Simulated scan of single mutants.
Amino acid sequence: MAYLILGLILWSAGHFFKRAAPDMRAGMGNAGKGVAALIIVVGLVLMVIGYRGAEFVNLWYPPVWTVHLNNLLMLVAVFVYGMSATKGRLRGKMRHPQLTAVKIWAVAHLIVNGDLASVVLFGGLLAWAVLEVVVINRTQEWERPAPGPARKDILLVVITLVMFGVISWIHNWLGVWPFPG
């Protein structure tokens, strides 16, 4: 559990570095980006090691139907995440699509997992994403991008479905089949 918590702290620190110490990061030039990226990657690795190695402490038993809700929310999360890269009509409909996707992803996983390590991991990342949005909104103005052609939104739907399939395959490969039988 210590690795998991340390990983969450490093992940958050790496992401907040630019906003918490902007002069220091700017003074470091490109090395500042590299340091932040390294801190984030180390945090991610520690979260994975900590989560996989954490003792299972059950807090509640989620109903079986929550798996279906999780899968629906995950499909939405993948779509919303993809909105950050779209050049279609949906461009500019949401200020923080990636962070919103992380929040949807975290809630989806909190719904379907009732153990302590899951609450720490997904709850911690949910808290980070909420705080990140608050900090960004307070420190940066947003210039809404102009919408693009609708055909790019159709491409986003196709990419979402493919990515959802890839993510499902990776979950299966890791030993967690995301679809109940």
Results as ranks from 00 to 15, higher is better:
residue 28 M to P: 07
residue 30 N to Y: 12
residue 30 N to T: 10
residue 31 A to P: 06
residue 32 G to C: 04
residue 32 G to M: 08
residue 33 K to T: 10
residue 34 G to T: 10
residue 35 V to I: 14
residue 38 L to Q: 05
residue 38 L to K: 09
residue 38 L to Y: 08
residue 40 I to D: 03
residue 41 V to N: 04
residue 43 G to S: 02
residue 44 L to S: 13
residue 44 L to V: 14
residue 45 V to D: 03
residue 45 V to Q: 01
residue 45 V to L: 12
residue 47 M to I: 10
residue 48 V to Q: 02
residue 48 V to D: 00
residue 49 I to P: 00
residue 52 R to Y: 06
residue 55 E to W: 00
residue 58 N to R: 13
residue 59 L to N: 05
residue 60 W to K: 09
residue 60 W to T: 07
residue 62 P to H: 01
residue 62 P to T: 03
residue 63 P to F: 14
residue 63 P to N: 06
residue 64 V to N: 05
residue 64 V to E: 12
residue 65 W to M: 11
residue 65 W to E: 13
residue 65 W to K: 08
residue 66 T to K: 09
residue 67 V to A: 15
residue 68 H to L: 14
residue 68 H to V: 15
residue 69 L to W: 10
residue 72 L to R: 03
residue 72 L to A: 15
residue 72 L to W: 14
residue 73 L to A: 12
residue 75 L to K: 01
residue 75 L to S: 13
residue 76 V to R: 06
residue 79 F to P: 01
residue 79 F to R: 03
residue 80 V to K: 03
residue 81 Y to D: 06
residue 86 T to Q: 02
residue 89 R to P: 07
residue 89 R to K: 13
residue 90 L to Q: 04
residue 92 G to C: 07
residue 93 K to Y: 10
residue 95 R to S: 06
residue 96 H to G: 11
residue 97 P to N: 00
residue 98 Q to F: 09
residue 98 Q to G: 11
residue 99 L to A: 11
residue 100 T to E: 04
residue 101 A to N: 03
residue 103 K to D: 04
residue 104 I to A: 05
residue 104 I to T: 01
residue 104 I to G: 04
residue 104 I to V: 13
residue 106 A to I: 00
residue 106 A to S: 15
residue 106 A to Y: 12
residue 107 V to S: 06
residue 109 H to R: 02
residue 111 I to D: 02
residue 112 V to Y: 12
residue 113 N to K: 01
residue 114 G to M: 04
residue 115 D to K: 02
residue 116 L to A: 12
